[in-house]
Amino acid sequence: MAVIEAKDLTKRFGEFTAVDGISFEVAPGESFGLLGPNGAGKSTTMRMIGGTGLRTSGSLSVLGMDPERQGPEVRASLGVVPQSDNLDTELLVRDNLIVYGRYFGLPMREVKAKTETLLEFAQLVEKANAKVDDLSGGMKRRLTIARALINDPSIILLDEPTTGLDPQARHILWDRLFRLKEQGVTLVVTTHFMDEAEQLCDRLVVMDQGRIVAEGSPAALIRQYSTREVTELRFGASRNEALLAELASLAVRAEALPDRVLLYSDDGEALLEEVNRRGLHPLTSLVRRSSLEDVFLRLTGRSLIE
């Protein structure tokens, strides 16, 4: 049975439709991703799952309950990691965890024991008595995630968990999230980082302008919306566009960007040989595997939407 079940979920703010009739299910223990550009409706969807955003229409069930009508009950089994850290700056690091646990009505003894475990999990034992304002960005993020675990949630909602972090901090975080997944916790992640989605998500939906435009595992989405490999060629700004027609005939799909031409095919090396055989001689060339980023850009476009 699905732990989250959304059907025709819609959210309007006045005239603006933020989420436009989306349907999806999340299975227990699954790591589910919501991908999309800014303004696609990811965070709004997250807020509705947590019951802090009210839906305009459609149905939504989280752990068999309606988050709108049974907010406190639903949130008792939910861990929420919001987009921007909202730690309690009036409290020390350790107290942030203790107090948050008390919000869930957990007994003090239990909360204290859990707090020490979580400080270790978040690698913040040495910072336990520090002020929140003195933590680095990565530490704050880890504390926010640790805080979301205090009530042993069965679902964790992570809204852009690693935005603004350096590569080291991101990898530590991914590692921690992966451990949670191994413990059987269901993860719901929004992100616009494709590598993050590939790292974390078993299955994902791509959202654009409030709608779901694609759904599947990262590998399946690449198979469906892209080719196995991509050949990137640079001929110099003036020639890229001019050569597009000829190059397109060699590939499954071709795309000219201002600085390079992208050729989608199942064998990029063979394609590159053919290009050279025809005497087109690009200035630089690169053959790589197709990534989720190719899928994402194909589905949601390359121009800024804002």
């Binding site: 802090t52 406190p72 949130r75 929420v80 909202n86 919000y103 869930f104 009505g105 009530n151």
Partner: peptide, 10 residues
């Protein structure tokens, strides 16, 4: 703070 509190079971 209140937004945070309301994302718990309060």
């Amino acid at each position: 703070l209140y937004e945070t509190m309301l994302s718990t079971s309060l």
